[in-house]
Amino acid sequence: MFLQQIINGLTIGSVYALIALGYTMVYGILQLINFAHGEIYMIGAYMGIIAIGFFVYLGLADISLTLTLILTFIAAMIFTGAYGITLERIAYRPMRNAPRLSILISAIGMSIFLQNYVMLAQGAKDKIFPHDLKIQGGLTIADAHITYIQIMIMLISILMMAGLTYFVKKTKIGMAMRATSQDMRMAGLLGINTDRIIVITFFLGSILAGAAGVMISMYYGIVNFSMGYAAGIKAFTAAVLGGIGNIPGAMLGGILLGLIEALGAGYISSEYKDVFAFAILVIVLIFRPSGLLDERVSEKV
């Protein structure tokens, strides 16, 4: 049972981590809680189902399932990336110099807007991931079941996190991102196009959330327009748990949160599942007021 709970926790934890990265990157640069980020994840999940429906309709799934899945991921990520950029352009860029709390309200307004936009466009019913794709099934390891989708979620998450770390640490744009997060005005003076860096940050955060959305739509098999809210709050909690603005912190926070939830629900009470996450957060913050990995031990982006 313990092993099974660890598997459950790691699966959902890697998804939280991917979403939390979006929060933490935007926060690192703009000091803004991007409240609409959960909705971007929801849009990613919808796009996954819409895209795979389209490819199945074209008959691509019969030719190569792997190719279909890869194309689905790419399509969903491009779209969520575009939504992220548009979100920044409409709701955040005009308010660059406004009080930060006003931007927060703008973000909340955007979140309400996106949720209802998807509800109107796609209907209030749950959308279902096609059952007849041959991606079901799984392995049994000593009484614990792990499905292929769970394995895929963990692998893709690790790949994406590694990719992001490489991008931020080693590439020129990554370096510019780090500079911008340290001091936006100074970075601007040094010739970095900070507006462009902000756009790239939103794009990266959104495609990670989009990938998380597609994986969740495969894992649970359903999506609905209100799923972004709860996941968004959990992921934000994860980002704060790890130390907001800190990329490894968001990964650690996300996976920890998933494990806490699974073990708490499994061994204590599933009624209080959502309480555990917050309770742990409060305890951590009392002892380490800026998260598990705060800025001093590692650089922030």
Partner: peptide, 8 residues
């Protein structure tokens, strides 16, 4: 949806 856009 109108409420949300009005807030923004």
């Amino acid at each position: 949806i109108i409420f949300g856009s009005a807030m923004v």
